[in-house]
Nucleic acid binder design. Structure first.
Lengths: 129, 129
DNA sequence: ATAAACCTTACTGTAGGTGTAAGGTCAAGT
DNA sequence: ACTTGACCTTACACCTACAGTAAGGTTTAT
């Protein structure tokens, strides 16, 4: 199949598929006589795997690792476990930071009941400290 | 004062200060005879304002707007309110997304009690759908 | 005198793509 | 036969918000 077909099956746009090939996340695609990329069902599976990982915000370098681990039959699940666990920790950290941010912004948003710009409490708060 | 002094007072590194000048977030700095940038107390205040905004993840373009609004004595607070409100909404959306992410990752992390890579439930889950 | 600490510009790289230009190919319709 | 439109190709620029590095000039302290 051609790139657009792969794109439809995986919900990854062609542009991004070529990009993934460029950076080595996908192997170099086979080409047919006119130079178009040619894909098979293995590519569909691999790309869906990648898309699912990206949806979970797993960085591309770590996806590369996950793919390598899968290819190596002798490796154990513990590497996979660790990677997912780390990703989970990162997400939880982000959530904590975002909640602090939300508190600050909310306090800021409700601080000004004025209408005169020179007296605006929001701007004053932003200047302070 | 010179750039390093400004940096210490505002907790913004010199590199970033020059960058802000490049992109027009800070006005072109005055120069003294040797070509070094020369700053005054107004610059301290302005840069602290910018830092506080960045800590709240307000994008640089919106900080530019906030600075313009402040300079214009005829403008009302409503623009400021709106901007902060939008930022708050963005942060809340990110939190919502992150919480969904956390759920997915947690489910994934606890799905595999296996140790054989070819049977790893995590990898299977990532391939599916 | 010299070394450390500071200043300058300019260019490159980061993550994960998206946008755009300029062109080749292919199938269908007129 | 010709054209139109949909598809394919590469290559380069752009996005955010900086950080790193090179290569060089200046100032300050010892």
């Amino acid at each position: 199949m051609k790139i657009n077909q792969l794109s439809k099956l995986t919900k990854v746009i062609s542009k991004t598929i070529r990009y993934y090939e460029d950076i080595g996340l996908l192997p170099k695609a086979a080409r047919n006589s006119n130079g178009y990329r040619e894909y098979g069902s293995g590519d569909v599976e691999r790309l869906i795997f990648i898309r699912r990982c990206r949806e979970l915000q797993i960085p591309i370098d770590q996806i590369k690792q996950l793919i390598q681990v899968q290819a190596d039959k002798t490796s154990s699940c513990s590497e996979v476990d660790l990677l997912i666990e780390q990703q989970l920790e990162k997400v939880r950290n982000t959530i904590r930071e975002m909640l602090l941010l939300e508190t600050s912004l909310h306090a800021l948003a409700t601080s000004c009941s004025n209408d005169i710009i020179s007296e605006c409490a929001i701007l004053k708060n932003l200047k302070g400290q």
